[in-house]
Amino acid sequence: MKRNYKYSSVFLIQLIMVLIIFIIGRLFGNLSTDVEDLASSLYRYISILLINIVLIIFQFMLARGLIYNRMGSIGEYMDNINYLKFKTFGVCFVIMLIPYIALATLGASVASALTADMMVNGEISSLSSLFGLAILVLIGQVIYGAFTCYRYFLAADHPQASFGELFKNTFKLGKNLFGKTIKTYLKWYILPVIIFALLAGLITNTNKGMTSIGILSILSIVFVIYAIISSTIVLGELSNHYLDYNSNVKYEDNSVVYES
């Protein structure tokens, strides 16, 4: 069912979020260049932590707003921060943390394999395998994102659910809505990224020097603006998927249980 949302409020809140993330990145990026390696790494980790905290807070506000304040003002959407509980934050943070742990583990394994390859062959002989692995990691991130993208809606809509219920039902809901979610991602994210990559490659091959850099810079700015606009539309579509699916929710002992 199609619903009306005040996309201008969602867009402006997303823009505020992006600006805050940009400021954090620049601030800690500048700090990390003026210190030794150990302190630089610490600043990078703090930066990543703060950025993820900002993402969770803003995504929760938007998710709850899209459920309860669809045509609300920026202030009404922002007021939803008052409903963010520590348990809710914890679930979203743990789900967000899992890919970092998986990538760190994979990175350590790859580094170990490359070191062994260098010691045996004197060079890295598996660059094509690394490229294939990078593609698989990217696909894995998209799939994981599709499975977990409703966590904010679920947490905002069922504050009474326990940590375990929210965690488990995030993946259940993601599985049941996977087809619709992937279609949304394909339409607004994946295909535009492919088109952008093809255009960037075409521009690089047909133009040289400053002309190529200038066109790519303009194209990049356009793509960033598109990314913010499209993410606003995607949030609306995900909200529709979630609310449409809510008819399949059962309540047992004040807990939410999604059908498999």
Rank of each mutant, 00 (worst) to 15 (best):
I190W: 03
I190L: 11
P192Y: 10
R151D: 12
F167C: 06
N207Y: 14
K168T: 01
L199D: 11
N176F: 02
A146L: 08
L154G: 01
P159D: 00
L177R: 06
Y144F: 12
N207F: 15
F178S: 05
F196Y: 15
T184I: 13
T148S: 15
C149W: 01
N207L: 13
T181E: 04
G164N: 03
I194T: 03
A155V: 09
H158P: 08
S162R: 14
Q141I: 14
G164R: 02
K187S: 07
L166T: 07
Y185V: 01
A161H: 01
Q141F: 15
T170S: 14
F178E: 03
I194K: 10
N169T: 07
N176E: 12
N205P: 08
Q160W: 05
G140F: 10
Q160F: 05
F147M: 10
A155K: 01
I182R: 02
T204D: 04
T181R: 09
F178K: 05
K172P: 00
L202N: 03
W188N: 10
N176M: 08
L177Q: 02
N169F: 11
A156H: 03
L199C: 15
F196A: 01
Q160A: 12
G174L: 02
S162P: 03
L166C: 03
R151G: 13
Y152R: 05
H158R: 15
A197W: 14
Y185T: 07
I190R: 09
I203V: 15
